[in-house]
Design a protein around this nucleic acid. Structure first.
Lengths: 425, 425
DNA sequence: ACAGTTTCCCGTAAATGC
DNA sequence: TGCATTTACGGGAAACTG
């Protein structure tokens, strides 16, 4: 007879890219009597999904059955690890289904891996079955940010282990919940989460007004609608910054030198009474994955001027690390000796004191040659005043809740991993 | 009965990468009587290669049969185009063969596509068969340069349509033959081949002495042994330069502004009597895919000094196009106003007159921001004198011979194309 | 240990589908 | 036509394999 398993506790749904290998492990937590037969486990994707539920169908391209093995002789548990699993889309898929859920984007479409086995003891046949938490299936890494948005939202707002229809009507998140998760996106790979002031700016950006703990943020606002006046969503924007930090700004971010999320209004407020040459680092709000510095200048007549450099993106940061850009940055005007306008990191840390340890580039010594390097520069022509921004204040949040390790009756779906982006959670 | 075809005239052997699609077309040149049956062609790799001939075995992963079609109603010829063909290595290959030809590298191992068809007319069954010229099969683009070296050598030195053992004992090339082909590597994608002086320098580099038309260059010297004192072969070095030109220097090369292949001794000889600030552009001999400029300075006391910048490679040229590097290049010394030492392109063309049309970069106008860009710089510390080099003179060569269009009895193997590097020949 | 070779897969660009 | 999604594959790096 069929004996459905207790579902595993909610764990981390993950993202699988077609054509890229992933690994999953299944563990049998009940200790079986000594057996002389092999327990074969079969893995399938979307085993008994009601047809039409998803618009795309996938199958496991590689071998999907494997025999369980004793995992650890001390406890005698059986387990099996499937490696090199690979998903491929079933083409010729009934296009009727396509229409069915046309509202959901691919990264909102949830799938699930099923694991089945059957063992016979004393003439009694017992079917075992369990399944993974929801999975997002993508075909290109450019869909990863969208996938992670889904994973975050799901984890944040439901305890259901397998609500594949979650995004048909996704609940809203309170700012209290969401801001904690956002901060965690940073602290999970670096030494710094987000500070109250940074979260405040993000909350305002998302809500259009100062957030309170109970403010509600819709899924659409978070990851489907573009930010007003911008060609990208809030999450796309934030994720591009996470990526920039991971690949180019980690040391600077870890030192907490990047204020990062600060409105242009707040920026001016902070800098205006500071010494000339005081600067702060801020992420671009107008372009994806950019960082800029803004410094203040007081002219003799008491006039205050703010300058920001065109944001540096990964392309530029590839040529010269950010700390070295700050170190050597020059503003060039006609007939004037180039000058580095950056003197003090806000509030008042001498530049080299702050960044000295982070400088990397040094004239390469390829003997017969003069070293070659880049000097990061701006041409000063006719600088203009400053544009728009968005101000206001709000609260942070507390840690906890996302870590659950379950011990379950039948199968314990342990891990689904593939190499990319596993550092994220 | 079997009726082997006349082999097609030598055409262009090519390079196929496993896992990457390629296309091939077969044409039947004899006009068949009106037929009511379909003529099916089958493609196979290394159909009847003597076992042990090659150390790796491949097969066509995709569908390999297709029916011929009337190509062109005016002449009634039948042809078939195989698209989306893909090669994959046969694993578990007999390792005995591996030992057999352990001397040959993968890019020296030649393969061949066979095409077969059978048609019946008036109870008479006729087998048709033809095959491609030799093919090099690679698994990663990093093997392309090696593959092209093989293709060049084969084309240059044999007319045999299918000598798959060519590299077991490859003949030597005369400098006269080889230099023509080398020049052609440049002229095939640009406006400039190689001049006599440039070829002279290459010949000396290859032979260790001034080349004469009859000087013989071995395959090994060309593409297997490292250049003395360097960790790369002659061809690797030259190919890295071809690549650099294609991707970053095409406009400058087309204008014939890159002397490129000139020994450091010759360089000094040319520059020493020129006005201070006269410079020339030369490819790095010590690093793969690098270009540098050398300029001359006459100090007041009549002393002549030569300076070269650390070569710019594709990484650097990605950040700023070469013409703009020349335009804005500055040498920076303590307490001195940065100066661009480049005044006249050798022999005496004012820099901006030569390069003006090629300047690209301009301060981007992202409104509220100060533009950001790079200034290419060198730090002047304690410049030293110059190192080694290698001088001497020799001849060029004439065009011709490589273009043959064949009309053959049975099949005419027409083209084997895949997207990468087809521009080469 | 190691060099030659292949596999892996991101990230950009192009192609495809709706 | 335009947007969403997938496919293609170069290129760097890791893994493999004698």
């Amino acid at each position: 007879e069929k004996q459905p398993c207790m579902p595993a506790q909610p764990q981390r749904p993950l993202i699988i890219k077609t054509g890229v290998q992933f690994t999953t492990k299944v563990r049998l937590l009940v200790k079986l009597p000594e057996v002389d037969y092999q327990l074969k486990v079969k893995t399938t994707l979307d085993k008994d999904l009601p047809p039409g539920r998803v618009s795309r169908q996938f199958f496991i391209l590689t071998s999907n059955t494997k025999v369980m093995d004793i995992e650890d002789y001390s406890n005698g548990c059986l387990s099996v690890t499937f490696r090199h699993l690979q998903l491929k889309e079933k083409k010729n898929s009934n296009s009727s289904a396509k229409g069915n859920e046309g509202l959901l984007s691919v990264t909102e479409e949830l799938h699930s891996l099923s694991f089945e086995a059957c063992f016979t003891v004393q003439g009694l046949s017992i079917d075992l079955e369990t399944c993974s938490l929801p999975l997002v299936v993508i075909s290109n890494v450019c869909q990863l940010p969208g996938g992670w948005a889904s994973v975050m939202w799901y984890n944040l707002l439901t305890d259901e282990p397998r609500n594949l229809a979650f995004f048909c009507n996704p609940p809203r998140a309170t700012w209290s919940q969401l801001s904690e998760v956002l901060s965690w996106q940073f602290s999970s790979f670096s030494d710094q989460g987000l500070k109250q002031e940074q979260l405040l700016m993000l909350g305002e950006k998302l809500l259009g007004h100062a957030p309170s703990s109970e403010s509600l943020v819709s899924w659409s606002r978070f990851s489907k609608e573009n930010i007003p006046g911008k060609p990208f969503t809030f999450w796309m924007w934030l994720d591009s910054i996470l990526d920039l930090i991971k690949k180019h700004l980690l040391t600077v971010w870890n030192e907490n030198y990047i204020m990062g999320f600060v409105s242009k209004e707040m920026e001016r407020l902070l800098l205006k009474d500071r010494e000339s040459g005081t600067f702060l680092l801020r992420f671009s709000e107008s372009h994806l994955g950019g960082i800029t510095f803004t410094w203040v200048e007081h002219s003799c007549n008491g006039e205050v001027k703010f300058n920001s450099v065109e944001p540096y993106t990964k392309i530029r940061l590839n040529a010269l690390p950010f700390a070295d850009i700050i170190r050597h940055y020059k503003v060039i005007s006609e007939g004037v000796v180039p000058e580095n306008p950056l003197k003090f990191l806000y509030p008042d840390i001498p530049k080299d004191e702050a960044f000295g340890r982070l400088y990397i580039s040094q004239p390469s010594k390829v003997h017969p040659y003069l070293s070659s390097s880049w000097m990061p520069i701006s041409m000063r022509s006719c600088p203009s005043s400053t544009p728009l921004s968005c101000p206001s204040p709000d609260p942070p949040m507390t840690p906890g809740e996302f870590d659950m390790i379950s011990e379950q009756l039948c199968f314990d779906l342990d891990t689904i991993t593939n190499t990319f982006r596993m550092t994220r959670w």
